[in-house]
Computed example of a mutant assay.
Amino acid sequence: MAIKEKVVIITGASSGIGEETAYLLAKKGAKLVLGARREEKLRTVQQTILNQGGEAVFQVMDVTKPQDNTSLVELAKKVYGKVDVMFLNAGLMPNSRLSELKMTEWNQMIDVNLKGVLNGIEAILPEFIKQKSGQIITTSSVAGLKAYPGGAVYGATKWAIRDLMEVLRMESAEEGTNIRTSTIYPAAINTELLSTISSEKVLNDFQQMYAQYGISPDSIARIVAFAIDQPDDVNVTEFTVGPTTQPW
């Protein structure tokens, strides 16, 4: 299998999609390098993997800080000697209507959802260019494909990721660096995202929707595994994933 022995960095690895992806890839023989802000949760994820016979290290980091991203890449190289995949998964979704003028939350989403991905790309791209191989996977959202009230800024960050990743794929093909890219657009996945919503009305609407339609984050973990498991000369650019019953 293409996953076995690959070194995979995961940001936002302490819960939700990142956590489930770490567990699944470890079972398939990948070597994990986990990054997030919450040390205790990271330690729990790592210990679970080790207890099951897998390999994982972690580092507390904030994707909004360029040096933290660079340090995570350096940790991977120090422990495992290389990096094969970087899964840029950290994200926030404090949705609100524009009329609420939640500028602080707007900036947080831009910093984490967009700049955080850029920081990760900046950290890993020199390595992938040098070795002429590598894979970058990002977690976008169906909000990066369609607009909806209450999701203007969140959606804007996720639309931006779509363009960013496609251009990265195109430029890599032109430059002969063989970097594979995949962008995942999840719909209602039961993670901690809703906990960041401070707008009472928007939160209520989303809680009702997720209670009706939400599915487990391990469904996205399987998509990540599928993308990694493709042959090196095959790139699957985009995955739109969600509950069968959700009309999106």
Rank of each mutant, 00 (worst) to 15 (best):
I161P: 00
Q135P: 05
L145P: 00
W106H: 15
E122R: 14
T157C: 13
I124E: 01
A123P: 06
Q131H: 06
K158N: 05
L145A: 01
G144I: 05
G151P: 01
L114Y: 14
I124N: 05
A156S: 14
Y148L: 04
R97W: 12
A123S: 09
L168T: 13
I161T: 02
V117C: 09
L168H: 08
E100Y: 12
M93P: 06
D163M: 08
F128D: 01
G120D: 07
E122T: 13
M109F: 12
A152Q: 10
M93Q: 14
Q135D: 02
I161A: 01
E105G: 09
I124T: 12
I137M: 06
S99W: 09
T139Q: 03
K158P: 08
S99I: 12
Q135E: 15
K146G: 04
A160C: 08
T139A: 09
G116W: 05
K158T: 04
M165W: 00
P149F: 03
L164I: 08
L145H: 01
L164R: 00
I137W: 04
G151W: 00
G144V: 04
L145K: 09
Y154G: 00
V142D: 05
T104C: 06
L145I: 08
R169G: 01
M93W: 02
K132E: 15
N119Q: 09
I137V: 12
E105N: 14
Q108F: 03
S133A: 14
K130L: 13
